[in-house]
Nucleic acid binder design. Structure first.
Lengths: 103, 103
DNA sequence: ACCTTGTTTCGATGGTTAGCTAAATAACGA
DNA sequence: TCGTTATTTAGCTAACCATCGAAACAAGGT
């Protein structure tokens, strides 16, 4: 959970998550949205993977990244709740059927 | 708003905010909850001040820190909303009547 | 087999951050 | 004015992080 906040601390990574929120994208596709080198992007992806915020699935030569809403939800909402501002959890996890921070 | 997330990336600072949520506390009082030196705590306070997450008021020799809920709320809820999970904003900002990320 | 494209690893570099000790500042009481 | 207490500033070190260019590693298409 600390890793989630660490991951969120970087604007680039936050933007990646926002892009991923709309639809799953490949690493290369995501990279086009930023003016940093591929290796740098790769490093950002690694951080997001480490924080379990995204799910990477390789098909052929490309790797598709997918947002794991449930994890982001848990961290953000959990924290929000600790501060009183309710947080009406209602993420429609249509593509995370298993739910929950998987072990 | 980036500063808020940067500030939130550190566990010590998050804990400070949680402590401050219950009641305003002096710098020394807060320091007692952690096993780091006073100067280190002071640096953390500076980061929180920079992010506008806390309000410092000096009375005599002591400085009382107070959580600025509205700023935390804006950042967290704003971000949450961008991801769909609603976020029912309802922080009782009894001591921040002005509200909103002050200009 | 041989390119081509997408992605990651390697090694280096500059900037940022958390932590420390020791010293400075500020306000109060005697 | 002289201590005492609370907090911050100064100066430092060590660790970390973002970034890069270049090279290595797939997987497919030709």
């Amino acid at each position: 959970m600390n890793k989630v906040f660490k991951a969120l601390a970087d604007p680039t990574r936050r933007k990646v998550l926002e892009l991923l929120r709309q639809r799953a994208m490949t690493a290369g596709e995501l990279s086009e949205h930023f003016e940093v080198s591929k290796p740098t992007m790769s490093a950002h992806f690694a951080v997001l993977r480490e924080a379990d915020l995204v799910d990477a699935s390789k098909q052929g030569t490309t790797i598709t990244y997918r947002l794991k809403l449930s994890v982001l939800e848990d961290a953000l909402l959990g924290f929000s709740q600790a501060f009183g501002f309710g947080a009406a959890a209602s993420a429609d996890k249509t593509d995370t059927p298993g739910k929950g921070t998987q072990p």
